[in-house]
Amino acid sequence: MFKFTFNVEVDDENPFNNIHNKEKNPSEKDLSEEDLEWYKAEKVSINTDILDNFDVYKLNAKILNVGDISIHHIVTGYILNHIAYNCEDNKDLANAEQSHSDLIPGVYEGGAKIWECTDDVLQYLATNFKSQEWRGKRFLDLGCGVGLLGIYVYNCGGTVHFQDYNRDVLTQITIPNVLLNLAAVKSVGDVEDSTESPEYKEIQAADVELLEEEVEFYAGDWCKYADITSNSAKFDYILTSETIYNPKNQQKLLNTIYKKLSANGVALVAAKTYYFGVGGGLRQFETVITADDRFQYKIVWSTSTEGIGREILELKLKDVRGI
């Protein structure tokens, strides 16, 4: 277990004001290696270490209002700075922070940052659907990172699997964010445009037990996650943002979506039209979908700005017979 030793303060910036672009220097990040050993998948539980540090997470919390839903989340800068130089138990995050890298293939896949297309999906959901529609639905937040997409639908009454490549990201960021929303006292609009800090109740063991009936966390490789959860119910919706930047992993992504999506389910894939330095992009990904021939897809949202655009693709299974 670790304890934070730094002074904390609330960061009032919108988390999307300083969005990170998933564009890499190819001299630093060679994604062409074929011999990467991807992490095995594992279920991650909410342990006492996370609960013991909950007071620090509360002090670093802020609220993002999306439509009529509030998303509580920590400002990760403080935690990442501490992990980089103080925590041997979180080696992947520490390695990434010390090297100032958003991507170390096979080691760290950028889960500690809020990526630009995450906001696109949140706004798309809030604009096109009523929050009540998600109650009782099953969701997979695939490559969840800080977990904003899964938290949004969880706050709408959905059941969610949060999946991220790095266990460190889940234990130090995603799970604390979910717990903040479980413990939140104030509702949407209560702290908007205010310097007042969010309010939270104490979390009891019974609260965690109830949460784990609706929410599960998984770390590791996508396909290995699909394998260890093969007996679980499939999902009505799969949400994934900025996960197609590496062309080598796109077929793996499609295979996972195919295995985990229910017969009449919908997958939303949000991404940029091109990722400099790594080779992936939406047009290139569409060629993989076409060659795969198991999905029908269409663009349901796109930016109107010049330059590198952002879009959301909707994927559905072509043939549901036998699924």
Rank of each mutant, 00 (worst) to 15 (best):
T118N: 08
K234M: 11
Q204Y: 12
Y108W: 06
Q132L: 14
I19K: 02
V288G: 05
F2D: 05
E133G: 11
L180D: 03
A112V: 00
V269W: 08
F295V: 07
H20G: 07
S70W: 03
K272E: 06
Q172M: 08
L170W: 00
E34M: 10
G189H: 06
E214A: 13
D35K: 07
V266M: 05
I151R: 02
D141A: 04
I74T: 03
D30G: 09
D52L: 09
K29I: 15
F6A: 14
K234A: 08
Y165G: 03
G157D: 11
I323G: 05
Q98K: 07
Y39R: 12
N81E: 14
W134R: 05
N231D: 15
V188N: 08
N95T: 12
E202D: 15
K186E: 15
D193L: 11
K316F: 04
C156I: 09
T127R: 14
I79M: 01
D236V: 02
D227G: 03
A263W: 04
F2N: 04
E213Y: 06
F235V: 02
E242H: 01
D319H: 11
N177S: 09
V191M: 04
G150T: 05
I151D: 01
N25V: 07
F295K: 04
E33Q: 13
G265I: 03
Y297R: 06
K43V: 03
I228Q: 05
I63W: 06
P198C: 10
N264Y: 07
V107S: 07
L317A: 12
L180C: 08
